[in-house]
Design a binder for these strands. Structure first.
Length: 757
DNA sequence: CTGGGTGCAGTTTTT
DNA sequence: CTGCACCCAG
């Protein structure tokens, strides 16, 4: 490849500075000039982490003839992962923008094809590469989402299908923390009910893979750990036999691929005419887990071991889905173990200048995170971390950190809504979308976001709350499900009803009533829909008892989608997206293989021998309990507009998880009365930590009580650090003064560190 | 204004 | 089991 013009790092930085009007900071530039080998970037909130990653990519792609980098790196040799698909798109977009700045400066760079970069979530790249290289353990394999995985376990694990009190109660008791109290019932042989068992096994199996638990030492441990190992192997076998894989084991298969001969040649780049993998960049490394850590270590072990991890151990908030902040904290030790480079030579690169927030907010956040004594415990936080320093142009002598205190917690929503209304009416904020409310949950129930949303509405404000779990409330979803129910159970003979107690006879899943009602309303305005449903029922009546119906469940759904009103609804983007999600779920349910019946899947409909024209009752009951039951308690969120953070004119209500990576001029944080409690993840870590695959780098984690506290501190640190101009922490008198974790390490801490409003 | 005792009500986050 | 309102003593 001939180049008219070679760009060194100085020139690259100059081009970018000219176009954007400001230079990188010294600590950002240090990272860009990282020569080679592992880099451990500790990026505080609002310190330009994505910016640095983007410029780093530009350097790799465009720079040559520089002491730090002699030649350009091929785009296909760079492996970049982010935590979400949205973040990956975001990074790719920024890269494209900056690339055009460079090409404006010198058009000869336009032949560098950045579309060849391997940039996606780790799951996405694992799936793509296993397919591209036709990995033997991933041929014709169906990748299951969480719903399919739970259903697969329900259908294929003997322990779920045939519960046995004597044998299974001791097993489930070991995992008691995975079940809500009410699922333990005498009428299920004192075992949890089936759906709960399947969901528990999902969590156990995923954790075994993601934590790299050593299965043979688990087996040797005897008792229920031995049983766990046996069940796990039964599950792995069922996956193989049925050509299926789940998200956690996708990573395991990818790791096995990397260690295989084809994988090694993919990494080394000699066999396929590409340059192999030369650089690995990982964003949000604090939310990575053990198997991902190992994948990155193997990926980065070729050549100069160019593995750049970027993250903030203080912002880890995904332990519940397997994230181990300890991977970020002990990166240096993992590098030493996997790559043979001394831990002491892995230099941390701090990113500590915060460009987001008012200086008072920056110092508040820094004080908050550092003043808890347990932050100094081993594996809690990277030691010697540089404090955050203010670097934004936001200034002014006003209460940037304020506590909004009421006598009773119930009065907070009203005070909150008044305050927001005041800010808007007085022109302090230009648009309602500059005031963000952050809560632990945005479900619109009385305990959660409900009263806050109501108070805003009462003050004439509209609310943007995309994750309010309202998927099942949507008309098109209810109508389609209602139509399906009207076909598979047209006489409503098999609807599950509560058996005993004062609610005997009522629907087990009350949502079913609205599904019927919506379907009735649909078929009233669209007579063809009712006619079609009746036509199917007539066809079923014509089938010989005991025979199969011509159309499977998902075929029936596809036909329904061709009829009004569904046909027209598919023309609207958000309706289309929702219906797409439902048809995907139906398709997953329908295509689930049935053990012992090769060629038959869940969606195959058979006509009952006893009741002519009806589908076999067992199937219908299973459909209610497995499918409707799942939708009912999965709490499905409505679809979200991907690009839009919050539309103008509306007040955003978000979870702290949703707000990660975002910023808002005014941030209100509620639900500060929560105290730390052990989650499923903490318990599972306690159970499986004694059986590490790599004992030399076993974590020295704080005990689970402390981990729960640390996790809560980090969650609120994320929330507080979203604020640009003002942070308002809302709580009752007792919450603000009482010294629960969200309000600081001790009583009165928040009052001393904020202004009261 | 602070802190502690008592008695009632009610269970989240997600590639 | 635990958060929260309320009450009362200092």
């Amino acid at each position: 490849m001939l180049k008219n013009f070679a760009m060194n790092i100085d020139q690259l930085l100059q081009v970018l500075e000219n176009a954007r009007g400001y230079p990188l900071t010294a600590e950002q530039e240090n990272i860009i000039r990282h020569p080679q080998g592992p880099a451990w970037v500790l990026a505080g909130p609002g310190t330009g982490k994505t910016e640095v990653l983007t410029v780093m990519l530009l350097r790799l792609l465009f720079v040559s003839n520089d002491p730090v980098q002699t030649e350009q790196v091929l785009p296909e040799s760079i492996f970049v992962t982010t935590f979400t698909e949205k973040a990956a798109r975001n990074l790719a977009d920024r890269l494209a923008d900056m690339r055009s700045i460079i090409i404006d400066a010198d058009p000869s760079f336009s032949d560098i094809d950045i579309s060849k970069l391997k940039i996606n979530t780790l799951h996405g790249l694992c799936n793509d590469l296993l397919q591209e290289f036709r990995a033997p353990n991933y041929q014709n394999v169906r990748l299951m989402d969480e719903f399919e995985q739970a259903m697969f376990i329900y259908e294929h694990m003997g322990i779920v299908k045939n519960p046995n009190e004597a044998r299974d109660v001791p097993f489930w008791s070991e995992y008691e923390f995975l079940f809500p109290r009410h699922v333990w019932q005498a009428r299920y042989n004192n075992c949890p009910r089936k759906w709960a068992m399947a969901k528990a096994l999902v969590k156990i199996f995923n954790r075994l893979a993601e934590d790299r638990v050593d299965i043979s030492s688990l087996r040797s441990a005897g008792d229920q750990m031995q049983r766990t190992a046996e069940l796990y192997e039964e599950y792995l076998q069922a996956l193989t036999d049925n050509y299926r894989c789940d998200f956690s084991h996708l990573q395991e298969r990818f790791l096995a691929f990397l260690n295989s001969p084809i994988g090694q040649s993919f990494l080394g780049g000699d066999a396929f005419g590409n340059g192999g993998i030369q650089w690995v960049l990982v964003d949000e490394y604090q939310d990575t887990n053990r198997i991902q850590e190992e994948i990155y270590m193997v990926l980065g072990s070729r050549g100069s071991r160019n593995l750049v991890v970027v993250g903030d151990d203080d912002q880890a908030m995904y332990r519940f889905r397997g994230g181990s902040v300890e991977c970020m904290v002990t990166f240096d030790k993992a590098v030493e173990y996997f790559m043979g480079i001394p831990a002491t030579s892995v230099q941390p690169y701090p990113l500590s200048t915060n460009f987001r927030s008012h200086p008072d907010i920056v110092s508040f956040c820094d004080a908050f995170i550092t003043s808890f004594p347990i932050m100094g415990d081993p594996d809690a936080r990277v030691s010697g971390k540089v404090p955050l320093s203010p670097g934004s142009s936001i200034h002014g002598n006003y209460p940037a950190v304020a506590a909004l205190e009421t006598q009773r917690a119930g009065d907070l929503p009203e005070r909150f809504a008044e305050t927001v209304k005041g800010l808007i009416d007085n022109g302090v904020v230009a648009d309602p979308n500059q005031c963000c409310l952050l809560l632990r949950s945005t479900k619109e129930t009385p305990q959660n976001a409900g009263p806050y949303v109501q108070a805003l509405v009462d003050h004439g404000l509209s609310v943007y709350n995309p994750r309010n779990k309202a998927f099942l409330e949507q008309q098109e979803i209810q109508g389609l499900l209602g139509a399906i129910l009207s076909i598979v159970d047209h006489d409503r003979n098999h609807v599950p009803r509560i058996q005993s107690g004062n609610r005997a006879g009522q629907l087990t899943y009350p949502i079913v009533q609205s599904l019927w009602d919506t379907f009735d309303a649909f078929s009233e305005t669209n007579p063809l829909l009712g006619q079609y449903v009746n036509q199917i029922i007539t066809q079923m009546n014509a089938v010989d008892p005991g025979s199969y119906f011509d159309n499977s469940l998902h075929e029936i759904v596809y036909i329904l989608l061709g009829i009004e009103p569904f046909r027209s609804l598919l023309g609207h983007p958000s309706q289309r997206q929702r219906i797409g999600r439902l048809t995907h779920l139906i398709e997953a349910y329908s295509s689930m293989p049935v053990p012992g019946h090769p060629g038959i899947s869940r969606g195959t409909l058979r006509i009952s021998t006893n009741n002519a024209g009806e589908i076999v009752p067992g199937w219908v009951r299973q459909f209610y309990h497995l499918f409707i039951g799942y939708l009912n308690d999965a709490g499905m969120d409505d679809v979200e507009d991907d690009e839009m953070i919050c539309p103008p004119g509306m007040v955003p209500v978000m979870t702290m998880h949703q707000a990660k990576g975002l910023e808002f001029p005014f941030v209100f944080v509620g639900h500060v009365g929560k105290s730390a409690s052990l989650s499923e993840a903490h318990h599972l870590e306690d159970l499986f930590d004694p059986y590490p695959s790599h004992s030399a780098i076993a974590f020295n984690r704080p005990d689970s009580t402390k981990r729960a506290e640390l996790d809560l501190i980090r969650q609120y640190f994320v929330a507080y650090s979203r604020a640009q101009y003002a942070l308002i922490i809302m709580g009752s008198r007792q919450q603000i003064r009482g010294g629960g974790i969200p309000c600081g390490p001790n009583k009165q801490w928040l009052r001393r560190n904020s202004m009261n409003i």
